[in-house]
Structure formats: C-alpha cells, structure tokens
Computed example of a mutant assay.
Amino acid sequence: MHENFKKAGFRGLAFKLALWNAAKANYEFRMKEMGLLDESAVEWFNDKPPLQWSRSHFQTFPKCDMLLNNLCESFNSSILEAREKPILTMLEWIRKYLMTRLTENRDKAKKSWCEKQICPKIRKIIEKNMEKSADCIPLKSDDWNYELKVCDGDRLTINLRTHSCSCRR
C-alpha cells in the first residue's frame, strides 16, 4: 500500500507516517490529519475500501480455531522439497509423506502403549490413584452409601446412586 501511495506522488516521511497511522488506528480521525497535509491524498484513498487496509475496519474474530500457527509452519517446512514440483507431483509427494508420517506415529504409539488400552500418561495417573486407594477403608452404610476412612484420618461419605462424595461440595 505504501509503495502504491508513493507511486501516486505522495512521498516523504510525513505522508508515510500519516498512511501508517491511518492503517493502524482510527481511520476517520487519521484521514482528517492526512487531509491537513494534502487533500488529494485523502481523495486517493476514497476508492480503496478501509476494510481492506485499515486495522480499525478489520474483523476481530479469529479466522480459525488455532491461535498459533506453529502447526502450519512445521508442515510447510516439511514439504519444502515438494513445493518446487508441478502440482500433481507435489500433491502425490505430500500424500505419500503424510501416509508415511501417520504410519510412523501409529507404530510409535503402539510400541509405547505395549498392547494396553490406555495411553501411558493416563495409565500412570490411574496407577498412582490405585496406590492411594489401597490405604482407604470403605465401610458400608446401606446399599448406596459408604463411609471411607482415608489414611490421613479424614472420613468421607460416598453415595454410589448419585455419584457424589463429601470431598466435592
């Protein structure tokens, strides 16, 4: 935008700063300031909708649900080799790359899961909770209620029908 502005004859630091101020801040206010420099500069902008170049007119909601583009950057850097190829060859290269990558990740996951149904991190949490639960002594009150004596001396009441516990209020 600035290069086109310069080509239209609006050169110099004052015009450059006025343009960037209009692009970054309140469009209407900054255009009045630009008009003080040169009214024809404001006319030059009249056929260019501020929705396309002024931040004050940009939409504020995100265009995708990811706030970071690290995933895109990583993917783009991995397909650099393919980007120089003709379109069909490039797409075939990317297809094969993705198939290989997904297979490698799947095999790595299978190896670390060791034929178990729960992933390793969750399995560690469950094992830790199982160790803690070995110190608890349940006492049945009736068909649905239990009193649980915990190793630190606390007593909790648990209702199996409502899936509630006195530890969660």
Rank of each mutant, 00 (worst) to 15 (best):
H2A: 00
F5N: 02
A8R: 07
G9T: 01
R11N: 08
G12Y: 11
L13A: 10
L13T: 08
F15C: 14
K16W: 01
L17S: 11
W20H: 05
N21V: 01
N21Q: 10
A22I: 02
A23E: 07
A23N: 09
K24P: 03
A25V: 03
N26Y: 04
N26A: 08
Y27F: 14
E28G: 04
E28N: 13
R30V: 11
R30A: 10
K32G: 13
K32Y: 05
M34T: 05
M34V: 06
L36I: 15
L37T: 13
L37F: 05
D38G: 13
E39I: 15
E43S: 12
E43R: 13
F45D: 00
F45G: 01
N46T: 07
N46I: 11
D47S: 15
D47G: 11
K48S: 04
P49A: 14
P50A: 05
P50H: 09
W53A: 02
W53E: 01
S54K: 12
R55M: 12
R55L: 12
R55P: 00
S56G: 12
H57E: 05
Q59W: 06
F61Q: 14
F61W: 14
P62E: 08
P62F: 12
K63W: 13
C64P: 01
D65L: 11
M66N: 13
L67S: 14
L67M: 10
L68V: 12
N69K: 05
L71S: 12
C72K: 08
E73F: 00
E73G: 08
S77Q: 11
I79C: 07
I79S: 05
L80Q: 09
L80P: 06
E81A: 05
A82K: 07
A82Y: 03
I87T: 12
I87Q: 07
T89Q: 13
L91H: 08
L91Q: 10
E92M: 10
E92F: 03
W93S: 15
W93F: 11
I94M: 05
I94G: 00
I94N: 00
Y97T: 06
Y97I: 01
M99L: 08
T100Q: 10
T100D: 06
L102P: 04
E104R: 15
D107E: 14
A109R: 07
W113G: 04
W113R: 03
C114Y: 01
I118R: 09
P120A: 05
P120G: 03
R123F: 03
I125C: 04
I125T: 10
I125A: 12
I126W: 02
K128P: 03
N129K: 12
M130N: 14
K132S: 03
A134F: 07
D135K: 15
D135Y: 10
D135C: 12
P138V: 08
L139V: 14
S141W: 10
S141A: 10
D142V: 04
D142T: 01
E147K: 03
C151V: 00
C151P: 04
D152F: 03
D154H: 06
D154P: 09
R155S: 09
R155V: 14
T157V: 12
T157G: 02
I158M: 04
N159Y: 02
N159P: 09
L160I: 06
R161G: 03
R161P: 02
T162G: 02
C167W: 06
C167N: 02
R168M: 01
R169I: 11
